[in-house]
């Protein structure tokens, strides 16, 4: 048992060692002649405008939150799955099935809620803008510009 898990440490260590070894081998062989241009940030030849450490779209954060909830649920489901076969062979299959059903249905309700709130549709903003643009009687070309 402890032996099994010690192997994970060994493999993580070997992964790091593999990288270190390759970087070290490279350090022995490769040239090092840095200059100002070479060390500048690559943005397709354009002058770099400011940092990239900026606020990013909040939607990524919402997806991460939804993921967190669902991942915990998935982790909770695994122990049930591991013993389900024993329950079925002991004749308690229907009881276990009902329990799984209730759990998964709660999960589905959560999914439906997130879905109806529009948090998993990536382009809801565009759809809303489009509608208001149509309501204001703007030309289709303008819409496309907004969507892009």
């Amino acid at each position: 048992m402890h032996f099994d898990y010690a192997n994970i440490l060994v493999f993580l260590g070997l992964g790091v060692l593999l990288c270190a070894l390759m970087m070290w081998l490279g350090a022995l062989l490769r040239p090092a002649s840095p200059d100002q241009i070479k060390l500048s940030t690559y943005e397709c030849g354009e002058e770099v405008e400011g940092d990239s450490w900026i606020n990013f779209n909040i939607r990524f954060y919402v997806v991460a939150l939804v993921f967190l909830i669902f991942d915990v649920e998935v982790a909770f489901i695994y122990p049930v799955a591991a013993v389900f076969k024993d329950w079925v062979s002991a004749g308690n299959g229907l009881f276990a099935l009902t329990e799984i059903l209730v759990f998964v249905l709660i999960l589905l309700v959560g999914l439906i809620y997130v879905w109806s709130k529009g948090d998993i549709s990536w382009v809801k903003q565009v759809a809303a803008t489009k509608q208001s643009a149509v309501a204001a009687g703007q030309a289709p070309g303008v819409e496309r510009h907004v969507a892009g």
Binding site: M23, L25, S40, T41, Y42
Partner: peptide, 12 residues
């Protein structure tokens, strides 16, 4: 080839 390539770490 990749072993022989220069290891560039940009300033930023």
């Amino acid at each position: 080839k990749n072993l022989l390539k220069e290891d560039v770490i940009p300033q930023a």
